[in-house]
Amino acid sequence: MADVQLRQIAKSFGSVEVIPGLDLDIPDGSFTVLVGPSGCGKSTLLRIISGLERPTGGNVSIGGRDVTRDEPSKRGISMVFQSYALYPHMTVAQNIDFGLRLAKTPADERERRVAEAARILHLESLLDRKPAELSGGQRQRVAIGRSIVREPGVFLFDEPLSNLDAALRTQMRIELAQLHERFDATMVYVTHDQVEAMTLADQIVVMNGGSIEQVGAPMELYERPRTEFVATFIGSPKMNLLPARAVGRSDARNAGVRPEHIRLDKNGGDWLAEVVVVENLGSDTVVYLESEDFGPLTVRVAGHQSLASRARVWLTPEPEHVHLFDADGVRLP
């Protein structure tokens, strides 16, 4: 059990500055997800927490202890890699056991912990297999098992689900959530997938260009995005951004409305637009439109909606769900 504190963390590779200087608090027991487009520095930040990468400035503390200069193995963390990083020449049991053996843990203790991890992750029947004989999901479980046995204060995950297919990803997401509940440990999770972030996190950190755009609970980010970047990054389909005059405001530059917060009417409303494509998803319908005044727009309506292509319809935003942003892309209250 441990919290993570980052103070003035900076990182450059040669002359390229990846992280210019950032502060972040990861509370004890939280499931914190670092999310952002590729190249935003989220993986670098995770590697700085793990100790695999040395920051060029600033401090890392874990559980109140400054670990900036400590070896990765001395930080009380464990890490699950995107590629799983299983040792191909060792069996599942040996893979899980490796760290304990290095730490010279007594044999009976090791055996107990490996068995326990295998039980939790349903790996009992696979302990004697080599990684090459496992499916993607099973490998993922072994990688998690390897981090569980170390009983770390902080679990680190580097895009752990990105090599799995969609169905497996959903299932592993649920298992990860259950693990978090069971261990009550701090988890720091990196992903570029905002759905993973929304479903897993109790705290999301949105990063862009090496800086933090916003930190908050998933619904907070959805309901009150602090910047245009967060507004368009979180939520699917993406939030519509229009010039503020569309909602009759002159004090802001842009107005944002989520597709699910626009009403569609054939007879009357605020904006006139022409239907381009209709995607029927069954539970709801996503309509892509083109407005002469404001460009492309997306609207999501519940249930099934039959609309002809090129039909002209009226759109009305729900006023309580309009977000306003100033010239710097920062939210206006």
Partner: peptide, 20 residues
């Protein structure tokens, strides 16, 4: 990744050479 995973699990340089 394999080398880094071993480092995280506490392997010294020689352990990484020998075991990985």
């Amino acid at each position: 990744d394999l080398v880094e995973a071993a480092k995280i699990e506490g392997a010294k340089t020689l352990d990484v050479v020998r075991h990985v």
